[in-house]
């Protein structure tokens, strides 16, 4: 029987193995092919590694939590247009102020503005969900997808009319890259992620109940509206932090979250969340090692992730896991 085969390895065992692999990947990333002075290599690679770990954590946690509150296994914050909003804000800034002014502005300030806009967006979307007579999640999801298209079209329109030099700068910013990490933002992003995690931790006991669906969660006494709002804000902060660090990655969250659901025997968050985080770390750090050492920087990790993730997304749709 298939489920029996799946259950062979206990969840804790999988987590331990994944944790060990992640640690090895980090150690390899820091030391492999190191030539020259350690005092240069360690901080240089350390920053990159820290950014990758932060991004892995944020994307994994935000995707799993988002899928929990929407009771859906296919849509993720990025597919819903959170990333598209980020691109729109960036494009809008460059259109209004020009690339030179935007580049010289304090990136931390930009980050906070973007973060604020994303939180606002998610709260407006959420209001939408509960104001209408039909309070279905599909409505929220459809609205989200339409917003995503709108944001993307608006950005594309603006990109057509801006100065070509500005466009080059913009394109560079909008392309997910783990090589040009915004290291100025590392500190503030880490701080925001830590704060969001703390907030999420405080409502963590509701996660599994929320996964049962809105009605059951209310029936079991979870203040559904309040808790889902909190989680949406947490998701918005995590997504903005990771997007600000490396740019938009659309399918990565889907990939690691689905992998975690597949590998773990049940869908309790104490198993799925750490698994998704560890898988994300392994994929990012491991992938970066392979790219740097084997392909000698010939391609960007972002492209590979999007390619694999996109294929996987199509596979999920075909298999009809949407439910």
């Amino acid at each position: 029987m298939l489920p029996e085969a799946k259950r062979k390895m206990p969840p804790l065992g999988i987590l331990l193995v994944a944790g060990a692999v992640a640690l090895v990947a980090c150690a390899l990333f820091m030391t492999l092919g190191a030539k020259g002075s350690w005092s240069f290599i360690l901080p240089f690679r350390g920053k990159k590694l820290a950014a990758m770990l932060l991004v892995a954590f944020s994307i994994a946690v935000s995707t799993v939590l988002f899928q929990t509150i929407t009771n859906n296994r296919i849509l993720t914050p990025s597919i819903m247009g959170f990333d598209a909003l980020y691109a729109l804000i960036q494009t809008g800034f460059i259109l209004m102020f020009g690339a030179t002014r935007v580049s010289s502005a304090d990136p931390r300030l930009m980050f906070l503005v973007e973060c604020g806009a994303m939180i606002l967006f998610s709260c407006v979307l959420y209001r939408w969900l509960f104001s209408g007579a039909a309070r279905s999640l599909h409505q929220l999801l459809l609205v989200g997808i339409i917003f995503g298209v709108l944001f993307r079209s608006l950005s594309q329109f603006m990109q057509r009319i801006i100065d070509p030099n500005d466009f080059i700068v913009l394109q560079d910013r909008l392309f997910a890259s783990f090589n040009t990490v915004e290291s100025d933002l590392l500190g503030i992003a880490a701080l925001m992620i830590a704060a969001a995690t703390l907030v999420a931790w405080r409502v963590a006991h509701t996660f599994d109940v929320l996964a049962l669906g809105r009605e059951m969660a209310i029936g079991l006494g979870v203040p559904h509206r309040r808790v889902t709002t909190i989680i949406l804000v947490v998701v918005a902060v995590l997504v903005s932090a990771s997007t600000a660090l490396v740019g938009p990655v659309t399918f990565f969250g889907l990939l690691v979250a689905s992998l975690a659901y597949q590998m773990m025997p049940d869908s309790r968050h104490r198993h799925v969340l750490p698994a998704a985080v560890l898988f994300a770390m392994i994929a990012l750090v491991g992938g970066q090692i392979v790219l740097e050492r084997i392909f000698a920087f010939d391609t960007a990790l972002g492209i590979v992730i999007e390619f694999v993730g996109g294929l996987f997304f199509i596979l999920l749709l075909i298999r009809g896991a949407a439910r």
Binding site: N72, G213, E215, Y261, S267
Partner: peptide, 14 residues
Amino acid sequence: SILRQDNAMTARLT
């Protein structure tokens, strides 16, 4: 407590 008719869920539980 309340039990509704339609209890579809995505969570995988025993």
